[in-house]
C-alpha cells in the first residue's frame, strides 16, 4: 500500500524538466493548480490537457508510473464525485429512491473528477522530477523574502529535508516494534475502533521514544559539524537560473494568458 504512493518519490531521468530550477517547477505547479480551478468548459479542458501532456512528455517519466500514484487516492476521488453527483442542486435528470442526479451534478462530478486526477498528475510531474532536497532548497529560496518578516524559512526548509530523510527509517522502525509487540501477544487488528486505538499504545510509545532519541542524537551530530543556523552558510548546490528557466517562465505566463483568453472568449 505505502509503496503505491508515488507522490514524494523521485524518478531519476535525464530530461529538461529534471534540469529546471526547482523554483520554476514550484511556480509552474502553482499556475497549473490555479488553472485547474479557473477553467470551465471543454476548450479550457482541452488546453489544460494539452499543456499537461506536453510536460509529462518532456519529463521522460513513463505515464504508467504516474498513473500508479492515482491508485492511492482513487477512493477519495470517488467519494468527492459521488457527493457532487447527488448533492448538487439543478435540473433533475434521473431520480431513484432518495437520490437525484441533476445536470449540474453530473457536470460537477465530471469536472471534479478531472480536476482531482489532473491535480495529482500535475503535481507528480514536479515531485517525480525534483529531488526532495532540491524542492526544499527551492522553497527556501523562493520564500526567502519572508525572513524579513521573521518567518524562519531556513529552519522550516531544514526540518522538511530532515523529515524526508527519516520517514523511511521510522517506517522500518514501526514495523520492527510492531513485530516485537506481536511476539508478546499484542493484537493490532481485531476489536472496535476504540479498542484498536488503545492497542496502538505499545506501538506508539516506543516509536515516540525512538523518534526523540534520534532527534537528540541528530541535533548533537549537527552541532558537532558546526551547524549554527542559516547564517553564514554556503551552499553546495546554489540555485542559479539558467536560460531554460527564463524560457520556462515565459511558457508558463503564456499558458496563463491563453487560458484566461480561452475562458473569457469562448
Amino acid at each position: 500500500m505505502l509503496r503505491d504512493i508515488t507522490i514524494g518519490q523521485y524518478y531519476p531521468a535525464d530530461s529538461i524538466i529534471h534540469k529546471l530550477d526547482p523554483r520554476v517547477k514550484l511556480f509552474g505547479t502553482v499556475i497549473f493548480i490555479i488553472s485547474l480551478f479557473v477553467f470551465d468548459g471543454l476548450p479550457g479542458f482541452l488546453l489544460i490537457t494539452a499543456f499537461m501532456a506536453f510536460f509529462i512528455r518532456l519529463s521522460k517519466v513513463p505515464f504508467s508510473f504516474m498513473v500508479r500514484g492515482l491508485k492511492a487516492v482513487v477512493m477519495l476521488v470517488l467519494i468527492a464525485s459521488v457527493f457532487n453527483l447527488f448533492l448538487s442542486p439543478g435540473e433533475e435528470l434521473v431520480s431513484f429512491w432518495k437520490l437525484t442526479i441533476t445536470d449540474t451534478g453530473l457536470k460537477n462530478a465530471i469536472f471534479m473528477t478531472i480536476r482531482m486526477v489532473y491535480l495529482i498528475l500535475g503535481t507528480s510531474v514536479m515531485t517525480l522530477t525534483t529531488t526532495p532536497n532540491e524542492l526544499t532548497d527551492g522553497l527556501e529560496k523562493a520564500l526567502g523574502p519572508l525572513t524579513k518578516i521573521h518567518v524562519p524559512v531556513h529552519e522550516i526548509a531544514m526540518m522538511m529535508s530532515i523529515a524526508l530523510r527519516f520517514v523511511p527509517i521510522l517506517i522500518e522502525e514501526t514495523d520492527k516494534i510492531m513485530k516485537a509487540q506481536m511476539a508478546r501477544g499484542a493484537d493490532f487488528e481485531s476489536g472496535n475502533l476504540l479498542k484498536k486505538a488503545k492497542n496502538m499504545v505499545p506501538l506508539l510509545v516506543p516509536l515516540f521514544v525512538s523518534a526523540f532519541r534520534r532527534a537528540n542524537d541528530l541535533a548533537l551530530a549537527m552541532e558537532a559539524r558546526c551547524y549554527n543556523g542559516g547564517e553564514g552558510r554556503t551552499k553546495m548546490k546554489p540555485l542559479v537560473y539558467a536560460k531554460r528557466d527564463g524560457v520556462a517562465y515565459v511558457v508558463l505566463m503564456g499558458y496563463l494568458v491563453l487560458l484566461v483568453a480561452v475562458n473569457s472568449l469562448l
Partner: peptide, 22 residues
C-alpha cells in the same frame, strides 16, 4: 543512522563545509 543529515550521500558530506562557509 542518527548522524547522516541529508538524503543523498554527497550532500551529507557537504553539510559540514556548508556550515563553515566554504
Amino acid at each position: 543512522d542518527n548522524q547522516i543529515i541529508a538524503s543523498v550521500v554527497q550532500e551529507d558530506v557537504g553539510f559540514g563545509p556548508e556550515n563553515i562557509g566554504v
